[in-house]
Write a protein that binds this DNA or RNA. Structure first.
Lengths: 249, 249
DNA sequence: CGGGACGTTGACGTTAATCAACTACCGTGG
DNA sequence: CCACGGTAGTTGATTAACGTCAACGTCCCG
């Protein structure tokens, strides 16, 4: 609670002590639900009457073009909120990637509460700010990174979120198609990038859905768009396949 | 059909009566400043001690990669706010595109005020929500639209912002390089797209920095990623150059 | 009149999408 | 238990999209 009041005045820094959802649950009660993979949570353009908190699992947020291209604007993990902001409609559709537990709050309670209860207000601010920060990263990635760099950056994001330190193995919860539609590339490109990184000795794929970063420095500078280092090695990746293979195995 | 649902979804649900900045000015006073083109307003990673409102002109928000690629995450017009949210540092650098008038508020006044004054709270909410809505559009554009479609969508955004109705001429305030760095393409691609649209009779370029949309339907469906219609005409653009030229001139 | 910033246009090369074949891994039912 | 089909992922060959390189035009400011 000291932390909460701290948030109220100073407005908390990048790594908040509590998730937006935790904050909200301290102030409001909502209805719990379980969502099966592929089932949808909100529909683009529908009237927004609820705010949803993700308790466990993973939700994907997406939009389609008329001719069927899909863009996944973000993945929402446990602790995240969906539907915050002054919108009267959902801007995206949302679906469960894996079986997910969610809590449904009435949007009105939150709007009303934001005026009076500093805890609710902070939860909302925090959710909005976190989303914007995430969007900055995503947008730079889409706007100015090459295909393989996008994949690398995304892996680092996954690894950071897991937060189990550098050497730990991370899970890729979503399918290649989900990754591809988030990164603006094809599934083939994702697959090739992953195996290229492995051949370069930057990481190890224990199976299709799990990886361990071996050379976070190399991966990190490549992902941040430092092509002075990255592109040469990238170009060599075909020629040096055999040599680099030593690192995997 | 597709067009209707498209309009509905991407856009801020209600056109707010007042800009975030107007709201804020009703509750707080700030210091006015004038910024020359290219001069910077905030620096990425610097401590955020102020919130800035744009009174006139245009500000670009950007980040660089280590090897010098630039991504412009957004353009902020008159009425917009910079630096809202629970951040302790700026997430991007900001520079004036054209000579701009801004108002500088102390971040602390706003943070404190958000708790007590509903007007300030609304201004902040509105700014955050508008930014997120804009980001959705930008991100879909970068993630799943082809180069020419991105240019088309951006032109429509410019035209909508100007808001002078369909047939009115709009200004392209920023340079080709700014457009390119916002859209994740090169200046050559922007230039070619513009002239391709002109040859197709979709718009008219009065000069390099001004255009009038002639066939907003075609442009709109192309921009929203309806390649069933768009790609054929795109492919024809070389073969039919002569015929299409009639529309320009 | 020269220099520089900005924009356009064409020729060419590279990146990544597309197309296609193939493998691995399920769960289901014969 | 293995055949079966369906989904997910990998990998190679080819092609389309767009970036790169380069030449040139235009406007503006000194």
């Amino acid at each position: 609670m000291d932390r909460l009041s701290n948030n109220k005045t100073g407005l908390s820094p990048q790594a908040p002590a509590l998730s937006a959802l935790s904050l909200l649950r301290g102030a409001l009660t909502g209805v719990a639900r379980t969502i099966a993979p592929g089932q949808n949570v909100s529909v683009e353009g529908a009237k927004r009457e609820t705010v949803i908190g993700v308790v466990s699992g993973l939700i994907r947020f997406f939009r389609m073009t008329p001719d069927g291209r899909r863009h996944i604007s973000r993945f929402v993990h446990a602790g995240g909120l969906i539907g915050v902001g002054m919108n009267i409609t959902y801007r995206n559709s949302a679906e469960a990637v894996t079986t997910s537990k969610i809590i449904v709050f009435r949007a009105k309670s939150i709007e009303a509460g934001a005026g009076e209860d500093p805890v609710i207000r902070n939860a909302v601010f925090q959710a909005l700010t976190e989303e914007l920060t995430a969007r900055d990263r995503t947008q730079l990635r889409l706007g100015r990174l090459l295909a393989d760099e996008r994949v690398a950056d995304f892996l680092l994001e996954l690894s950071d979120e897991a937060g189990d330190g550098v050497a730990a193995s991370s899970a890729i919860v979503m399918s290649r198609a989900d990754m591809a539609d988030h990164l603006g590339v094809t599934i083939e490109t994702v697959s090739r990038a992953l195996h290229r990184f492995q051949k370069l000795g930057w990481l190890r794929l224990t199976d299709a859905r799990h990886f361990t970063i071996l050379r976070s420095g190399a991966l990190r500078s490549f992902a941040s768009g430092d092509s002075d280092i990255a592109l040469p090695s990238y170009r060599l990746s075909h020629a040096n396949e055999r040599e680099a293979l030593q690192c995997a195995a």
